[in-house]
Amino acid sequence: MKLNRRIEHCASTEKLCQIRAEVRQACQQMHFCQEDINLITLAIDEACTNIIRYAYSGDESGRLIVSIFHNESDAIFHLQDFAKCISPSCLEVRKKNLTEPGGLGLQLIHQVMDQVQLLPPSSSIGNILELKKHLPLL
């Protein structure tokens, strides 16, 4: 697994725009089409938003790291925070009426990405969310 890019910021909504710009660049370098770049960027942005909103509850002193890797078949995105560990059940999508509020971001992440999972925590603090998307066939 080769590291393409590591993006580290404080967990502030002001940084979301910069994170999206870097994710777009990384996706272009992995030869995704524009439609896929739009959707992958959305999924990563939604995951970062959830970290800012729920893991850190708006505490901007928290750190947020997005590491982008690839192997022969997949683009792999690791989103790391240093907040309280969450349960994998937090990633389950409940079927919902889209005109009702709540949970839309998580649903979009699952729709866009091929694999969504929490990696086993390496310490008692923090979470690493792994998102995978198949690389385009060249």
């Binding site: 939604e46 938003t49 005109t99 509020p101 839309l104």
Partner: peptide, 16 residues
């Protein structure tokens, strides 16, 4: 050029 789920949720709320 971009809208996330918080923007979409805003539109849904306003639509309702």
């Amino acid at each position: 050029s971009y809208i996330d789920s918080s923007g979409i949720a805003t539109l849904v709320e306003a639509f309702n």
